[in-house]
Design a protein around this nucleic acid. Structure first.
Lengths: 343, 343
DNA sequence: CTGAAAGCGCTTACAG
DNA sequence: CTGAAAGCGCTTACAG
């Protein structure tokens, strides 16, 4: 069967080998490695011993062919240079590994071509997909679902209400940030947006604008950072060069807020927060770094991941159940990058 | 066969369905989806059309059962909060996806219990494993290899010379940093170490000490940061509280250097680099952030990943070939966190 | 070029 | 509790 001679791994040890060694049948071996299947204590022990001696390990690939469950979850993620995502990934990994699921990781190229991605996800018969890439077209989610693969989007929602999602409270976060800035007596606010079509950006911006409106403030100045460090540098330069320079900027995430702070301080010589307040979103690790000490709205990763996990499991058990849309509350973490409300 | 009624995904579309629709045999369908297998243009087209109409996608799991190649690579990684690793991961993903390999991601809990990890890796029949976790015991590598799974360690080496590795030039990097600091006229150097048993730390420290020796300088003051931000904060506090305070510190990676800078500036009120020079290692993205502007020795991720990929492929083709130990050259990236050599 | 058939390593209904 | 056997969805040597 093998044609390329280069390929020859030592013969695999299979359940049949173990069965022979333990003087029993292959089915019994299978049962010994399957939770709550009926097998006498005695036989089970004999099998386990033989297996250990032979270095036998059940072949998960073969198993999933018959069970039709791979115990593999596809995770699609990009923007790994934004610390928020690796942190999410690490927690996801922990959570799913603990439940004996493995994670097959995909990045969507920023080009957004999700088709080949979808192909691969389907071919590997994943039990579910977690989509945590803001860059992603919502098409991927729809395709997965149409193909019967449970999907949950993490840190984003998409148009289709039938697709479950877990997000932070983006709108409320934007709103609180707007209130905080206006209460501190800022006169000219700015907003540096992430990717325009992303739900995170949309909701954060929505909340922010609403707060300004309620406070009787004009619309904020606007620039596009696209969740990219370099683009944000340009956006900040542009915004800070305006005739009327903002005295407070809300950046749609911490990653951009850091870029913005660097520009303000080192290119414009501004003192933060005296000359300019900056607030981010996510409360990533670097927000705590003293050189930034960034005021931010938190997204509690642990809770988001737990909710994602629960939702995925529920969907695997009952694919037809109604979609869930979980919103995990965060809170404004006040540090020193923005002036405090006048008391 | 299925007992739990909750589980029912729509019937999968298999090669047999496509064969029927295209009026041919299942073998032909298989051939249509296999590169360079003999099949008439005509039949192939008919099959592809039928497949598209039915939404058929070959089942990679079933395929790997017969080919005995899963086209899955295990990647083991931890310390994802050190930006170096997500950056590596993103590149690895790109590189392997491009070659039609998928990545099954594992974190080793920092506890270091690698046994269950090994179990899972084996069960999923991965074609190879890339170990990029400094926290890892070298046992995992040995076990994989003993089980016939090609292994390459990335950003670390282990004792066993039969296990391939790809690393930056840690020793030379440490050496150049030592020369740079001594040439700048520093009098009292300090070293904040990463994980003691890690090869990266060992080699960086080795080179550093050698340079000091050659320059006729005393051994550096020493503190342990264990590649952890919080531990480094403590280490830096301790080191900077000494009677004779160092005027230059080499931190075994950028992640720790940032922690160290924060302590120096915001707890001790030191001016960097006037009062204290700090140099890191890796040249991660944050080293370029203006608030740190960190002098560092670079590890060229792209090249490291390319080499890892090539090595993995070579080992998959010829498992018995001799191990490779590739060292990718980096360079000192001079920014403003350390005083310059006296010219 | 094409098809029938064996086999990859498991799980599980069935029968005892 | 235990075993023989069918079947999961493919690949590929074999024969035509």
């Amino acid at each position: 069967m093998r044609s390329d001679k280069n390929f020859q791994r030592r013969r695999r040890i299979t359940a049949i080998d173990v069965a022979k060694a333990a003087g029993t049948s292959q089915s019994a071996v299978s049962r010994a490695f399957t939770a709550n299947s009926s097998l006498s204590k005695d036989l089970r022990e004999r099998i386990i011993t033989a297996a250990r001696e032979l270095g036998y390990r059940p072949n998960a690939i073969a198993r999933s062919l018959t069970t039709r469950r791979s115990r593999i979850i596809a995770v699609v993620m990009s923007y790994l240079n934004n610390q928020f995502y690796p942190d999410v990934l690490e927690k996801l990994l922990d959570r799913f590994q603990k439940a004996d699921y493995q994670i097959l990781l995909f990045t969507s190229e920023r080009s957004g071509l999700s088709d080949p991605l979808f192909e691969q996800i389907m071919r590997y018969q994943v039990d579910a997909a977690v989509l945590a890439s803001t860059a992603l077209s919502s098409r991927l989610a729809g395709e997965c679902r149409a193909a019967g693969v449970p999907v949950v989007t993490l840190n984003r929602t998409i148009d289709d209400p039938d697709i479950s999602s877990v997000t932070g409270d983006n709108q409320r976060g934007g709103y609180e940030i707007g209130r905080f800035l206006s209460a501190a007596g800022h006169k000219n606010l700015g907003f540096i947006a992430g990717i325009k079509q992303s739900s995170t950006n949309r909701d954060r911006e929505l909340g922010f604008r609403q707060a300004l409106r309620e406070a009787g403030m004009p619309n904020p100045q606007y620039a596009l950072g696209n969740y990219s460090f370099d683009e944000t540098v340009k956006a900040a330069r542009h915004m800070l060069s305006q005739h009327i320079r903002p005295d407070g900027i809300f950046c749609a995430n911490d990653h951009m807020a850091i870029a913005c702070m660097d520009v303000a301080r080192y290119e414009f010589g501004l003192n933060i927060p005296k000359d300019l307040s900056i607030i981010g979103f996510d409360d990533v690790g670097a927000a705590r770094w003293k050189a930034y000490d960034l005021t931010s709205y938190s997204q509690p990763i642990e809770m988001m991941v737990d909710n994602t996990f629960e939702t995925v499991m529920a969907l695997i058990e009952q694919p037809e159940q109604p979609a869930r849309h979980l919103v995990v509350p965060g809170k404004l973490v006040v540090r020193s990058s923005a002036r405090l409300p006048l008391s």
